[in-house]
Design a protein around this nucleic acid. Structure first.
Length: 255
DNA sequence: ATGACTCGCAACGCGAGA
């Protein structure tokens, strides 16, 4: 079962790239983030025509997440529990082939002196609560998405350049480690000793200079991690015409 | 050339992204 995660930075602007990727990658499940559109205008027909079921949680202009799956989805949850006043569409969860899969668009949190940073930290605390509840089921769980956290300095081309940024703050990194310490594993690091990046800024020739950061992650419960056979980052979409600034990351589970 | 962004929006510059 091949599961991928991709922040597409507008699903409508990226539709040609998305169709290319679905055709080329043969993923069973694709978790999308930053749709930047509402459910009514999500390009559902184009994706269903490729043989995928589609579950979305969209929002006008900002955010928005979705799960695409060759197999049907059950028990879809469209918000992160813990704050009924939170209107931002950043979380969707569904069961596919007895695997519970979440598509996560964690808040960026910049600038850190504004209310955006405590919103990020509060959102991470709610994610930790949800991750604990899911872990209690002792089943395969995949928490996939754009975490907007650079876990360690080595996950960044130049840690000094990101000093003071919400993505590298100790409070952000601590909460990411809490997810690991409760029993989830970072799929990429469990198989790959060297670092590759998943995001390169549009500006300053970051892609050409490989000035990237690793912020898109797939976290696995022990029952999912036991079945992990492969992990990779598909860099091709980042080098194509009119790309997203993120590129897909994927795993293969022997399920 | 010591550098160059890309989305959505009842835009015509701005907010947001990371």
């Amino acid at each position: 079962m091949k599961i991928a995660s991709w922040n597409v930075n507008s699903v409508k602007a990226r539709l040609p790239r998305l169709i290319d990727y679905l055709n080329a990658s043969s993923v069973d499940v694709l978790c999308l983030q930053e749709l930047k559109t509402v459910d009514e205008t999500f390009p559902r027909e184009e994706i269903e025509a490729l043989g995928y079921h589609v579950e979305t949680h969209g929002q006008k202009t900002y955010n928005g997440v979705a799960i695409l799956s060759k197999q049907p989805m059950e028990n879809v949850l469209r918000r992160l529990p813990g704050d009924d006043s939170d209107e931002q569409a950043r979380y969707i969860e569904a069961t596919i082939n007895d695997v519970r899969i979440a598509s996560i668009y964690l808040p960026n949190g910049n600038p850190i002196e504004t209310e955006k940073f405590p919103y990020k930290l509060g959102w991470m605390d709610r994610l930790i609560c949800q991750a604990e509840k899911l872990l209690d089921t002792e089943t395969p769980i995949v928490l996939a998405g754009d975490y907007n956290v650079i876990p360690q300095d080595e996950d960044c081309y130049d840690a000094k350049a990101w000093d003071g940024d919400a993505l590298t703050q100790p409070q952000s990194r601590h909460r990411f480690r809490q997810l690991l310490n409760m029993g989830y594993s970072d799929a990429y690091r469990s198989f790959t000793p060297h670092v590759n990046y998943t995001y390169w800024d549009y500006q300053r020739g970051a892609w050409q200079k490989d000035n990237g950061i690793r912020i898109d992650h797939l976290l696995l419960s022990p029952q999912a991690a036991d079945t992990l056979t492969e992990v990779g980052i598909d860099k091709d979409p980042r080098g194509q015409e009119r790309p997203s600034d993120h590129t897909p990351i994927w795993i293969n589970l022997d399920i």
